[in-house]
Design a protein around this nucleic acid. Structure first.
Lengths: 152, 152
DNA sequence: CTTGACCTTCCAATGATGGGAAGCCCTACT
DNA sequence: AGTAGGGCTTCCCATCATTGGAAGGTCAAG
């Protein structure tokens, strides 16, 4: 086991946190690492390369399921280019529709701002609009599937 | 208690699911509803109006915390317009930065597609790029805070 | 031989929502 | 009057990626 690294080193060089490396192992995204006699995980340069692949895919917003599929394709020499493309294409169109939703929210909010005095008076067109029963506030239901945990 | 409605009716007319109405009550976003002798929740038209306000704000992507603040302002006649504006402004800039991230992911993916043959051959520039140690794939770390649960 | 930095596992929380089970309530129909 | 059904109740669990912490074992240097 020459050239093996601890999880901390693997985390530092791959950009994936040690926590997440253990997590990815537990959920089966990556293979279980070899261990020292003391139980420490050991990572080869090839493992770290895989971790980098995972991080880059996450940076592009791929889900863990997508990445699992991409990893399989990556390690399979007989893969067809179009299979990879299918995964990436699905992700891309999801991104595009998410972008469209966000832009429609931005537009609606900017519209609400148009008449906002931004002063000490209690009159506020933004609240008026939210309270207006005739206004569906761009009714497209957004909710959980597209993730507004804290930022949207 | 004339003019009172069950949670199902309130859900249907407000557009907020019964599940979520109970949830909002539990987390304190809305006040606990009155109950019948049998324990059924009862909603007045004013309650339903509040629920509509909540739904519209959610449709605009406001977080529950934001909405809680907006509700307080809405029910407070001495509010200052600028306080509402502060909440909405914070949300708007969060939306804008999220939009920017998504567009950078879209751009990166579209770039990967440029040389993709989309055929049966095993050669795939998308995977090559993900595996390329020299390529940080737009290193801006995205992750949990901006929500890619299933779509990104 | 201690100290401190690292590693281990396990459990919990985030945020908004959905799903389901087990059981009570109410109305309508036989 | 009894029953079928639908709606209501509470409680727990799952999602998704990630972080945090606690309790404890290991290793290297001082």
């Amino acid at each position: 086991m020459k050239h093996s690294h601890t999880i901390g080193e693997a985390a530092a060089t791959s950009g994936v946190s040690a926590k997440m490396i253990r997590h990815y192992e537990k959920i089966g995204l990556i293979e279980a690492a070899d261990r020292t006699d003391a139980g420490y995980r050991l990572y080869t340069p090839a493992d770290i390369h895989t971790l980098r692949f995972v991080r880059r895919a996450r940076n592009l917003g791929f889900s863990v399921d997508d990445i699992s599929e991409l990893l399989d394709l990556w390690k399979n020499d007989t893969r067809a280019s179009k299979d990879v493309r299918r995964v990436a294409d699905g992700h891309l169109s999801a991104l595009r529709s998410k972008a469209a939703e966000i832009h429609s929210m931005i537009d609606a909010l900017e519209h609400l701002f148009e008449n906002c005095t931004n002063d000490e008076r209690p009159d506020c067109p933004i609240l008026k609009d939210l309270a207006d029963d005739a206004n569906p506030a761009r009714p497209k239901d957004v909710g959980h599937k597209f993730g507004f945990e804290r930022v949207c």
